[in-house]
Design a protein around this nucleic acid. Sequence first.
DNA 1: CTTCGTCGGTTCACTGGATGAACCATTGGT
DNA 2: ACCAATGGTTCATCCAGTGAACCGACGAAG
Lengths: 254, 254
Amino acid sequence: MSTQSVVTAIRVLEAVSDNQPAGLSELSREVDVPKATVLRMLRTLAELGWVAQSEAQAGKWVLTNHAFAVASRGSSGSVIRDAAMGPLNALQLDTTETVHLAVPDRGYMLIIERLDTQHVLRAFLPLGSRLPMHASSTGMAYLSAADEVFVNEYLAGPLEALTPQTVVDPAVLRAMIVDTRARGYSINEQGLSTGITSIGVPLLGPGGVAAGSISISGPSSRIVPAKYQEYGEAAAGTALEISRALGAFSTKGY
Amino acid sequence: MSTQSVVTAIRVLEAVSDNQPAGLSELSREVDVPKATVLRMLRTLAELGWVAQSEAQAGKWVLTNHAFAVASRGSSGSVIRDAAMGPLNALQLDTTETVHLAVPDRGYMLIIERLDTQHVLRAFLPLGSRLPMHASSTGMAYLSAADEVFVNEYLAGPLEALTPQTVVDPAVLRAMIVDTRARGYSINEQGLSTGITSIGVPLLGPGGVAAGSISISGPSSRIVPAKYQEYGEAAAGTALEISRALGAFSTKGY
DNA sequence: CTTCGTCGGTTCACTGGATGAACCATTGGT
DNA sequence: ACCAATGGTTCATCCAGTGAACCGACGAAG
């Protein structure tokens, strides 16, 4: 509506982010705004240190680290991170498996922290990875704590299969969410990546609303069904601790 | 100069980032722009999903995770990350200590990846942390590979001491940079955090320009002088591999 | 070698979107 | 009851943002 130049600028910024080394005409097409305007936006954003011309390829634009710095410093995730790091550390040491901390972003789960296993066989989810909710244990855990409206909306949308094992049937997913609620933790067997299994538990923020989730992941050869309960309960205990720190159960309410 | 509304919007965004749950008047003062304008910016940014009103405290504004997602997805760091993860993984397994990947941002080093040690005694630098260059091994390593102009500029600025051991004398720092160049790695003994020692090596990008750095860190009780050389050389080897992957030495030139 | 299509980047007259002083309603401290 | 903050609204003024048309350069195709 208002401040359309700002809207354009941000859309340009996001377009740059999506198309990494992006050319002017390319961006102009993407955002559907005249080149002159796009260029002005890029110049302005460059002055502010958010984008820069790629040194490798003249004329191509890239995001700078500054954008990342600003976003990560202030992200609402940082509150969660502060509350979570201690307990997560303990959980990682207990289970010896990789532990993730994720927060929701528009239907995806965003990995904002990771504590690694000491095992040689280990998988990586780079910081900033976006995982579809239905294909990850963190996502399903989050959905199990999210309000019905959000869940319905999400399940109504297109659900991509990342592996042959990814569950994309809304009815089945709904049943899995119910199971997750009853059990206290979600289980994802190779739905995100072949050979990887993970266990997720939701985190609650102030007022008891879903704020994110944590997970324990590892190769399916190590994270076997016999361990699900042990890991699930360990993660649930950790999540409870974090949620409490976030003020999920404080009488102060919201 | 131009597109001042965009400038204002971004400045508001950064102000929100810096003051976490920030109030309207507070931001107005910070950015030195009338409340009405700030509010319009906030509303626009909210429409775009970059900021939101805190649920906990009405009227307070916070960054959303979406900002983080956009920035981290497109960050120029992602190119480095892709090139670095493999070699870093090997380095972590070799040394068994915590390994960091950092990129520069306006005089700070930004931690964009971390691979954890398996030791119980371990320190955390949350992902997204900003470390002053002169107080970190990653920073000094970066400076050792950066061009003179940048180094002079940085050393001319205010240099904060984070611990009693932090070196803040420009002349001493300059000597340390020379040493780092000769040695191939930087050493930081408790200059960032008491009890933590770390070894850093710069990464070079296309054209041989400094692009970031990696480090090995751990408690000073484990990272003792006797190990400096071993770790330093291991890190240097890893850095060389990453720099090569980044095209630092490709004949293709800049 | 010429032509064509694309690229990144520039120019400039027009106008509608952005601006900010002054305003209101609430809240909390004394 | 008062005062000084807060978050949020209004609206006349005007200048910043817009975008069609332009340029020179490059690469592929004829």
